[in-house]
Design a protein around this nucleic acid. Structure first.
Length: 627
RNA sequence: GCUGGUGUAGCUCAAUCGGUAGAGCAGCUGAUUUGUAAUCAGCAGGUCGCGGGUUCGAUUCCCAUCACCAGCUCCA
């Protein structure tokens, strides 16, 4: 005879054991219709779960986050169900929930086609209409293995092998389809329906590229049609922000097959590039960095000593000249140590901060190249800080502040931070790694920054803090980084003289704020949908005349703007003003100054912002950005 | 690198069930002299990604290759 306490504190009493669904119905039929699960003591259960004891219960509806997660999970099962009905030979593997939806990996010799996707989607809708109940059963391990072997689902038996052998294993059955699953699930397929299959792709069994390839189907799912529609619209909008499309439209750069992963910067793109470099250079000067420039191509022997030849060889471009083998630099660090080593350094000189806008080449796998985001040649706002162990903490802390300051200046507030720890392929002993990882972790905790730990993802010479930004399709790209390196200075014989006159090996901090300048520009373009803020816009002002009579006067205005270091251009073409405005808007130029007889007579200027707002100024000198 | 898809004019996209391609925008020329998101007309523009094969004939079919797109794996 359970007493059930609801979240509002009220207690429902029942004279017999009840299911969560019964409780929902007792509260109201409206709630019953949207109840997808129940939560007891923080654990989620199906609505069919029978309650025997006095407990606290909250009903999970399709309106809540948890409810939507369950809907997505059940939709993945629905997808597998539909696929099995249409293609009985296909084997099912796993189907987890992801942001906005789900995917399901299938093992099949015949890959799915886009036409299949439509067919599968229709079949899924058919199953939704039938409102098939999802029934949970439990079995012991051997029975489950027998069952899946019996229906020739060998991947399922492999998954079961990894499960806890002492726990009963739960299965969910909908009609003729049964899947291994922890649950919970919606009561019946009628709770689903607001989904769309979005893409087909290959994936590896257990995420290992040595394993066989599976066929993955991605989908999005929501509890309401409106949300699904909104999401699909958002994706469409996001595609319009794609930096590759915008860069073509705005004539910023291009890529071509003869040099995959390497950029041809056009004038306007290169202007943006230089503005960014100038800004960073100014910041570095304030923060007491020096700037250097080192060779692009260095003899193999240096890379052997630095450890790159051993750990990084596949990703380096090499070339031979006069029987000597060279590598085009993938990183600047060994070269910076060469400069460091040319002078005898005292502990008083530390920390020594050496920056370079260094061009790096890395032989990235062809399938990973992606616009400006993933290139084979890019320039980093790289620097190496040579310091003593005692100085690590303050340098890392100062750098974290600097990263946030710079990102804010560019208009970014959403920054993801991760700590990547020692990889399998590495140099330096574990004691050194312990110290290095701790140094970074302490700094993050001191700054009270939320971060994710990525085990095994550090650089081969040291752990790193990663600062990442998202692109328009929510893909995360690492930009800034701070890496502690106790190994390379020693390998390349860097030393300093300490207080007692003894030779010591400095610690080296590898750090970049923007990371790759190219990638950062890609993210900027998408972040602003091409409408860069005034200080970054390659063309800041377009002067347009109404008719030919004002052309000379407009030319004078143009010259005045240029004298004020404003990047201005003219549009004196034989077009109507509305056409010129349209053109400037399409080019995302922040301001126009339209010169007609009125302006010529009064000597004033009227500026028009990209959003269409007009403001009058008494002279060019008085012009201030607005809007 | 792996799986699947795509590749036609500067851009966005048609067409040809095998008979060497067409539109809009951009460009150029001319007319128009215009007041806040497209004035009109004309012209020019393509070895149909590159290389083979089949065929009387290939942009179209087949093979190979390169690049791009999506995802996976990787990623400093």
């Amino acid at each position: 005879m359970p007493d059930i306490t609801l979240p509002d504190g009220s207690i429902k009493n029942f004279d017999k054991d009840v299911s969560i669904a019964d409780v929902a119905l007792a509260i109201g039929s409206g709630l019953f219709k949207v109840a997808v699960a129940g939560c007891i003591d923080g654990v989620l259960y199906d609505t069919s779960h029978i309650i025997k004891n006095n407990i606290k219960l909250s009903i999970i509806t399709s309106q809540t986050d948890e409810g939507v997660q369950i809907i997505r999970h059940s939709t993945a099962h629905l997808l597998a169900h539909a696929v099995k009905q249409l293609y009985p030979k296909v084997q099912v593997t796993i189907g987890p929930v992801i942001d906005y939806g789900f995917y399901y990996d299938f093992a099949t010799s015949e890959p799915f086609t886009p036409e299949d996707l439509t067919k599968i989607e229709n079949k899924m809708q058919e199953l939704v209409k039938k409102d098939i109940p999802l029934i949970r059963t439990e079995m012991n391990l051997t029975d489950v293995i027998d069952y899946f072997n019996g229906i020739n689902e060998t991947y399922k038996t492999k998954i079961i092998a990894d499960l806890d052998k002492n726990q009963p294993i739960s299965l969910y059955t909908q009609d003729d389809f049964t899947d291994l699953c922890r649950g919970p699930h919606v009561p019946s397929t009628g709770f689903l329906g607001h989904f769309k299959l979005t893409k087909i792709a290959g994936s590896y069994w257990r995420g290992d590229s040595n394993n066989e390839m599976l066929q993955r189907i991605y989908g999005v799912a929501f509890s309401h049609k409106k949300q699904l529609k909104q999401h699909l619209n958002k994706l469409d909008e996001a595609k319009k922000r794609d930096h590759r499309k915008l860069a073509t439209a705005l004539n910023l750069f291009h890529l071509q097959p003869e040099s995959p992963g390497m950029v041809f910067w056009h004038n306007d793109g290169w202007i943006i590039y230089n503005i960014i470099v100038d800004y960073i250079r100014k910041i570095l000067n304030e923060k007491n960095y020096t700037e250097v420039r080192t060779p692009e191509m260095v003899d193999r022997s240096l890379w052997e000593r630095s450890g790159h030849w051993d750990k990084f060889k596949e990703q380096m471009f090499t070339t031979s000249v006069e029987n000597r083998e060279y590598a085009i630099k993938p990183m600047n660090c060994p070269c910076h140590i060469q400069i460091y080593n040319t002078t005898l350094t005292s502990y008083k000189d530390l920390p020594l901060r050496m920056a370079e806008f260094g061009s790096c080449h890395r032989n990235e796998p062809s399938g990973t190249l992606h616009g400006l985001m993933r290139l084979r040649n890019f320039i980093q706002d790289d620097a190496h800080i040579f310091c003593s162990k005692e100085q690590i903490s303050s340098e890392v802390l100062a750098f974290i502040d600097l990263v946030y300051e710079v990102y804010r200046h560019f208009g970014f507030n959403e920054i993801e931070v991760a700590l990547s720890t020692r990889p399998a392929k590495r140099v330096g002993d574990d004691k050194i790694w312990d110290e290095a990882e701790k140094a970074l972790e302490d700094a993050l905790q001191k700054k009270q920054i939320k971060y994710e730990i990525k085990p095994g993802e550090g650089a081969f010479y040291g752990p790193k803090i990663e600062f990442s930004l998202k692109d328009c399709l929510d893909r995360v790209w690492q930009c800034g980084t701070m890496q502690v390196d106790f190994s390379m200075p020693g390998r390349l014989d860097a030393t300093y003289i300490d207080k007692n006159g003894d030779k010591k090996t400095p610690v080296m901090l590898h750090r970049a704020i923007l990371g790759s300048i190219e990638r950062f520009i890609g993210i900027l373009i998408e972040h602003y949908a091409g409408k860069l803020p005034f200080w970054l816009a390659p063309v800041q002002v377009i002067i347009a005349n109404i008719s030919e009579q004002q052309q000379d006067y407009a030319s004078e205005i143009l010259q005045e703007l240029k004298k004020l270091n404003i990047r201005a251009k003219s549009d004196f073409s034989n077009e109507k003003i509305s056409y010129k405005i349209r053109k400037a808007c399409n080019n995302k130029t922040p301001f126009m100054m339209i010169i007609g007889d009125k302006e010529m007579e009064s000597g004033t200027i009227t500026a028009r912002s990209l959003s269409g707002e007009n403001k009058e100024f008494s002279s060019v000198k008085d012009f201030k950005i607005f809007g």
